[in-house]
């Protein structure tokens, strides 16, 4: 058994293959930090009547500091959001792979196969068929990706309204701030509920991967992992002879430990958030 057996992406047949670019990994780390920051500074306000609300706000020095940090994390969110959009536009501007970006096996755009896979998974759950075999991105990963897109658009725009009400009141009637308050809080509740349960399960906690999958931090996964999680991509590259170019050195011990620390911290904080939400809802 490998000493790095905790990392689902480090188990199984070698070699390691590159899966995420340094920019993608950096942006995801920013997503984690800013999202957790937003959640912990926004949750006390959403559940102001909860018994833990003052305590959680107190961790960062009270609700007024929490409000400040919430806006700092919002800025980080906008930064990674527009950096990502910019990087996509840059790729399109270079013209090399616009079509592949928008359609086909490497695209994030939902394909007919994704819907077939979703039904296929349910058939497999019910013992009515084989487990679907995924391409570079499964429908779950695409859902996560577009959910963040949708979430930032909805939560970000409603948040901006509430951040600068006097400015937006130049064009919009004041009751949109009432609407924005409901949308901002409830959409955020959906985002955290989904990320800290479903995303955590699909990516880290399901038995095939338990306890953690560090591919988004280290950027690389074992061939064994790829064969199991993304067999169609693996086979496609094998046939095209492009696997060789993806071979990556094993992750350094330091990078592994840092990834593990960040991953487990985020997982624990996420689970804590779920506990707080349930506590507040059932209180």
């Amino acid at each position: 058994m490998s000493p790095r057996v905790l990392d689902a992406a480090d188990r199984g047949a070698r070699p390691h293959l590159w899966r995420f670019t340094p920019l993608q990994r950096t942006l995801h780390a920013l997503v984690i930090v800013s999202f957790l920051g937003l959640v912990f500074t926004g949750l006390p306000l959403h559940f102001a009547a909860a018994p833990w609300a003052r305590g959680v706000a107190g961790i960062v020095g009270g609700i007024e500091s929490a409000g400040f940090l919430h806006r700092v994390c919002a800025i980080i969110t906008f930064v990674y959001f527009f950096t990502h959009i910019g990087s996509l536009l840059l790729r399109i501007a270079r013209g090399a792979d616009t079509k592949k970006l928008l359609w086909g096996p490497d695209s994030m755009v939902p394909q007919p196969k994704d819907f077939r896979d979703l039904f296929g998974m349910f058939r497999w759950f019910l013992g009515l068929g084989q487990r679907p075999r995924f391409e570079r991105f499964s429908y779950m990963e695409k859902f996560d990706y577009w959910a963040v897109f949708w979430g930032i658009a909805v939560i970000g725009s409603s948040g901006l309204l509430l951040w600068f009400p006097e400015f937006f009141a130049r064009f919009l009637p004041g009751w949109v701030f009432n609407v924005a308050t409901i949308i901002h809080g409830d959409e955020a509740l959906l985002a955290m509920s989904f990320i800290f349960t479903i995303h955590f399960f699909n990516v880290h906690l399901r038995p095939e991967k338990f306890p953690i999958d560090l591919v988004i931090f280290t950027g690389r996964a074992s061939a064994g992992y790829m064969i199991e999680e993304h067999p169609l991509e693996y086979e496609r590259r094998q046939q095209a002879g492009t696997l060789e170019g993806l071979v990556a050195p094993p992750v350094s011990r330091a990078a592994y430990l840092w990834s593990l620390a960040l991953g487990f911290t985020a997982l624990s904080l996420g689970v804590l958030v779920i506990v707080l939400v349930l506590w507040a809802v059932l209180h």
Binding site: R11, E208, E228
Partner: peptide
């Protein structure tokens, strides 16, 4: 069908 990555495919 249920095996994890610990076991080689």
């Amino acid at each position: 069908a249920g095996k994890g990555h610990g076991e080689a495919p």
